[in-house]
Design a protein around this nucleic acid. Structure first.
Length: 458
RNA sequence: GAGGUUGUAGCUCAGUUGGUUAGAGCGUCGGAUUGUGGUUCCGAAGGUCGCGGGUUCGAGACCCGUCUUCCUCCCCA
């Protein structure tokens, strides 16, 4: 026997029932995106390595899937680098292309490349798979789909507000009973780093701070010591550990703490505008929380940063995003601030499955099944079948004259609500039997009566 | 990238200190029922025990390698 086929780790097949649910999810996402004025674009699955490398931090670079050069190009391999044990350089000489790691960086490249064809502020959405060479885990895949909205060409904080509204509207429309939209601002984090005299170590600082709720105060201090922060600078951080209460209380305390930092104050001011606007507008199911420990490792964020967590399930963040002032500058277009967010479709799918939030009717892909009683009966049914399809209902004729038992079982398995039976005598009389599969009841109808009923169903 | 864990029928899983012919439930197929499904009863098919190597008279079980699963870390959606 041939060996059982498998697919690579971290990837999945989707059965019809799963695709139906995923499409349900995508449809709601698209609907909201479109309503806020975003238009869809698509970009290639893979980019030049130079486009992607270096944009996500060291950790991110490691997780980028690289595409091996093909054909004669393989001869370009830098064997000296290999001999010198310089593996990154050796790898680069083997590969010039890589699968996209997210949709934001390819989008920045897209904007720069097509800047003459775009009207700014440019608003786009993009729903496509991305790939990460990560260790698979619960809610973590090597191939997964992101749903991104981004706008570039405006610094207006109205877009921060808009992104929060989109989070709230999409997730509420999907039926999530509750979720936290966490917000922070990189400028606040920069201000803190500046104040403690470690302005150039902001990444190490934020990564450690990010773990506060996981490893606790002492854990953060230990990590900072390990990273080489001086006890003196760490001491200056400790007031932050006491930060508690609601958003206003946290902001007030932080206002005093950051009094001497211009950039920190700016971050606070931005945050306040956004929080006030949202407070005035209100949210449906979402809860907006200022979370100072929210850091996000992606190093292109410069202003607001977001992360969303679903309530009632054990799952990492289901959405993320933030403002980036310099991303297009990396590709040669300066002074173009952007902000964007991403919905992790696969994690949201998992959350919805766990909470049983998908409508049951999604599995119904066929409304009417015509039973096949034989060659001449089938030919007769075919004409009626065409009319049912013209009305707009999904309908089909069973392909062979199997036992009725088998045909009904097929209808049952496919959750078909109505089965039509036309035997020899019925065909002659222009009559048919319509069986309701849910109630089991059956009625005799003329063909005209049946078609009228189909129109009502549609 | 570090550590741990898992893999036996289509699916979920049993399988004792290594010992003849590897089991169950569900599902599938056939029949009870030749034009009536979802329930019931009877019967059948379906396995190089993830893959490769090793130890042994003998391996599903022990050892090594490899792939895969899930978990913790790292990072993230």
């Amino acid at each position: 026997m041939a060996q059982k086929p498998t697919i690579p780790k971290g990837t999945r097949d989707f059965l019809p029932a799963e695709v139906a649910k995923r499409n349900f999810l995508f449809d709601i996402v698209k609907q909201v995106f479109a309503r806020y004025g975003y238009a869809p674009i698509q970009t290639p699955s893979f980019e030049l390595s130079s486009t992607l490398m270096g944009k996500y931090g060291d950790e991110g670079d490691r997780l980028i899937f690289r595409i091996l050069n093909s054909g004669e190009k393989i001869r370009k391999a830098d064997l000296e680098a290999l001999a010198a044990d310089n593996l990154p350089r050796f790898a680069s000489s083997l590969s010039e292309k890589a699968l996209r790691y997210d949709l934001t960086v390819p989008f920045a490249r897209f904007v720069v490349q097509h800047q003459n064809d775009l009207t700014f502020p440019f608003k786009r959405y993009q729903i496509q798979p991305v790939w990460r060479a990560d260790r698979p885990q619960h809610g973590r895949y090597q191939e997964f789909t992101q749903c991104d909205v981004d706008v570039v060409g405006s610094e207006s904080l109205l877009y921060e507000v808009e992104m929060i509204q989109i989070f709230d509207e999409v997730l509420s429309n999907l039926g999530l009973p509750g979720f936290s939209i966490c917000i922070n601002n990189r400028k606040i984090l920069s201000g803190i780093a500046e104040l403690i005299g470690e302005a150039d170590r902001i990444v190490d600082l934020t990564v450690a701070l990010d773990k506060l709720d996981k490893i606790g105060q002492q854990g953060v201090i230990d990590e900072l010591l390990q990273k080489g922060f001086t006890p003196k600078s760490i001491e200056k951080i400790t007031p932050l550990f006491a930060l508690q209460g609601n958003n206003e209380q946290k902001m007030e305390l932080l206002g005093e703490y950051l009094a001497q930092s211009e950039i920190g104050q700016k971050g606070l001011d931005e945050l306040k505008v956004v929080l006030d606007d949202i407070a005035a507008l209100g949210l449906q199911k979402g809860e907006l929380i200022f979370d100072l420990t929210l850091a996000r490792g992606l190093n292109y964020y410069t202003g607001a940063i977001f992360e969303v967590k679903a309530h009632g399930v054990k799952m990492g963040s289901i959405c993320g995003g933030g403002r980036y002032d310099d991303l297009t500058a990396l590709f040669g277009l300066k002074d173009l601030s952007g902000i964007g967010i991403s919905f992790g479709a696969d994690r949201i799918y998992d959350v919805m499955s766990e909470l049983d939030l998908f409508p049951k009717s999604l599995n119904q892909t066929l409304s009417v099944l015509f039973v096949n009683f034989g060659e001449s009966e089938a030919k007769h049914a075919l004409k009626l079948l065409r009319e049912v399809r013209n009305i707009g209902l999904a309908a089909e004729l069973y392909p062979q004259a199997s036992k009725l038992q088998k045909q009904l079982k097929y209808a049952n398995d496919r959750q078909v609500p109505y089965v039509v039976m036309i035997g020899q005598q019925e065909a002659k009389d222009g009559m048919l039997s319509l069986k309701n599969m849910e109630t089991g009841q059956q009625e005799q109808l003329t063909e005209a009566e049946f078609l009228t009923k189909c129109e009502q169903l549609f």
